[in-house]
């Protein structure tokens, strides 16, 4: 759906096994990787070491099988690099190199695995997946329709807010207030709240988003 253009950034179109795989299966696979990496060290250091290394190798293999580029893999690691180095140093000092490797490999493997899931699943499918998780909660009083409406509202508002940030940055630049955090953010928040209020009003005018939907049905009948 093109309306979600901004948030589709995570998805890389393709026709790999993973692109065609059902979302539930991918989620199960991700869960399996996480459990293997997190639980195996409890058996023994050696089991943890080898299981995690195997999992990491498998995930890296899967990354390329899904047709995802190198850059994507490196970017995921780079964003955590500082922390990874700190963690590795501490673990090495406390428990030796094997444990340090296991801990680092476990983090990288799970992050890459989830990267594959999000890179091979379009946003709409992810949202449908979310909706199907929420649906059973209806019995305990949740309102999936209003939940989906709120999610849709949020997605649709992101481009508006980004646009507001851009406008305000230009305005601040024009007045030489580029480094003024207040001048850069207050107008954005004001515009955002005004927008939220007019959207809320429009929803109310259309009879959407209000809890008492049953009243409408009654009104139609009598």
């Amino acid at each position: 759906m093109r309306g979600h253009a901004f948030v589709v950034a995570g998805y890389i179109p393709g026709n790999s096994v993973f692109h065609r795989m059902r979302l539930g299966l991918k989620a199960a696979g991700l869960f399996l990787v996480a459990v293997m990496c997190l639980a195996s060290p409890f058996v023994s250091v050696a089991v943890g070491f080898w299981t995690t290394t195997a999992a990491l190798a498998a995930v890296v293999g899967a990354h390329f099988a899904a047709g995802l580029p190198w850059g994507r893999l490196w970017r995921a690691v780079r964003l955590m690099l500082v922390f990874l180095v700190l963690i590795a140093a501490y673990q090495w000092w406390q428990h030796g190199p094997a444990v340090a490797w296991q801990v680092i490999a476990a983090i990288i493997a799970t992050v890459l695995a989830s990267n594959i899931l999000t890179a091979t699943t379009p946003v709409d499918e992810l949202l449908d997946g979310l909706a199907s998780i929420v649906r059973p909660l209806e019995r305990i009083g949740a309102d999936p329709e209003r939940f989906s409406l709120t999610v849709a509202l949020m997605l649709r508002s992101i481009p508006f807010v980004i646009g507001a940030f851009a406008d305000v940055r230009d305005a601040a630049r024009a007045r030489g207030l580029e480094r003024n955090l207040m001048a850069r953010s207050l107008p954005v928040v004001i515009a955002t709240v005004a927008y939220a209020r007019s959207t809320g009003e429009a929803l109310a005018a259309r009879g959407l988003g209000e809890p008492a939907i049953k009243t409408v049905e009654r009104a139609y009948k009598d």
């Binding site: 948030v7 209003r146 409406l149 709120t150 999610v151 509202l153 949020m154 997605l155 508002s157 992101i158 508006f160 807010v161 980004i162 940030f165 954005v188 928040v189 955002t192 709240v193 927008y195 939220a196 209020r197 959207t199 809320g200 009003e201 929803l203 109310a204 959407l208 988003g209 209000e210 809890p211 008492a212």
Partner: peptide, 24 residues
């Protein structure tokens, strides 16, 4: 909707838009 329990349309809109502000 003020008298009803729970969030009204305005509340949902504010929640959604502030979540969008987080994302943006």
């Amino acid at each position: 909707a003020r008298r009803r329990r729970g969030w009204n349309a305005m509340d949902l809109s504010l929640i959604a838009v502030f979540a969008a502000l987080m994302a943006a």
